[in-house]
Design a protein around this nucleic acid. Structure first.
Lengths: 239, 239
DNA sequence: GAAAATTTGTTCGTATGTATC
DNA sequence: CGATACATACGAACAAATTTT
């Protein structure tokens, strides 16, 4: 009995072959990484893929759903449609990242610290156009300081501009995702006095970015100020 | 008929109702964001979900494939199985991020600059245990300097430890994803002299992290050194 | 602008492997 | 070990959408 039990649980047996649809996902994913598939590459219709992989159409569908969810393929219906390797869409992906952060319970603290790291690098890579965009974003925010919702959105615009000044898509994508996690859809706490304080901090950040260094210190101070008031955290945290 | 045609082309027309499976994905995703579903929450079997949503099992399957691909649900078969909201798995996510960076063509340059931003923050948040781990990683790397593959892996370990010292899961996940994009599976170029130079740079980074500031400067110098030699870029870039 | 062709979206039915009880 | 519950997989078919003709 015991022997039979051991045999039936043969240790040599590798994890059984993964699901067929998973194998298809892995295959296509690998071909993207090794460069044999690039954005725009045509994969075929569901029926063609089913035939070429020797599986049913539903199995192919399962695989395409997974690939589509990771943003690796785009699917179009109609004549000439089918599955193609997607162009990169970091925004679409930021959503998936936001989901993971939500599950992980990544909160305001980690978000702001990551933001600080991202924006601190802008000072090192910003060019003249970046500075003009940042300056414009600041002026726009000030012009709508009386409108909490508009001011909040303008503040987001400022931070996005800062991230873009880093000229680094990885960091930009991370910031967009982080903002998606915690940015309140409507922020009614940005009262005029809060707006004035936020504006002051933002201009300090801008000045240091313009100087080309020290942005990290400004961000750290920004964060420190936020922590002074738990109640005001949500209002100021993302401005 | 004509009226119908005009209506069908009405510019005000919002994006038409999304596919049923997409609606299910959105619904579950939203319930995770609003907190009514948390990791471990049981969603039901495919049949139960099909019944409760009023759609076929295959439509539910499509939705579950998408949710599973984003790492939002875990599926188990067998009695007592079914779909549950997943625990967070930032590693799994890092893979999806890596795919996007691959599609976007994010390369060595942006990777290193992002890495610099990530690791620079470690100096601000490291504690005593972090320093011990970092020191251990450095010693381990030095002890295998004669073995290119082992040294490369040890160097990765050092950088991961640095990222972990930032105590920020967003940054840790970003680093893991970036490394996945560009880390060579085998690095045969880490000759002893290269290893010695890398070791020196790493110890400089460590010293500044220990001091609690200035890590960014060390990283920047690291990057600058890498750029001196295009040929040696791949060997040194990720050490 | 309308018809035709192509492809995805969706459903039902059925069979099989697998994990739990 | 058997029974049960569940995901995985296949086949056929129709509806809806989109491009091409």
């Amino acid at each position: 009995m015991l022997a039979a039990t051991f045999i039936s649980k043969a240790p040599l047996r590798l994890t059984r072959a993964a699901a067929l649809s998973s194998q298809i996902v892995t295959e296509i994913r690998n071909r993207v990484f090794d460069g044999s598939l690039v954005p725009g590459s045509f994969l075929g219709s569901e029926n063609e893929l089913a035939k070429s992989f020797g599986v049913s159409r539903i199995t192919v569908r399962d695989a395409l759903r997974s690939l589509s969810a990771m943003g690796l393929v785009k699917i179009r219906q109609g004549a000439g449609g089918g599955a193609r390797i997607a162009e990169s869409d970091l925004d679409y992906f930021a959503d998936a990242l936001a989901v993971q952060f939500q599950l992980a319970g990544v909160g305001v603290d980690e978000t702001l610290r990551a933001q600080s790291a991202i924006e601190g690098t802008a000072a090192e890579h910003r060019n003249h156009e970046d500075l003009e965009r940042l300056s414009g974003a600041l002026d726009h925010a000030r012009s709508v300081a009386h409108d909490p919702a508009a001011f909040t959105e303008a503040s987001l615009g400022f931070h996005l501009a800062v991230a873009e000044a880093s000229r680094n898509r990885a960091l930009i994508a991370l910031l967009r995702a982080l903002r998606f996690v915690v940015w309140p859809s409507e922020n009614k706490r940005a009262t005029p006095d809060v707006a004035a304080r936020v504006d002051k901090t933002h201009r300090e950040i801008f000045a240091r970015i313009e100087a080309g260094a020290g942005a990290r210190d400004a961000m750290t101070k920004h964060l420190g100020g936020i922590r002074l008031s738990k109640q005001k955290q949500h209002a100021e945290a993302f401005c």
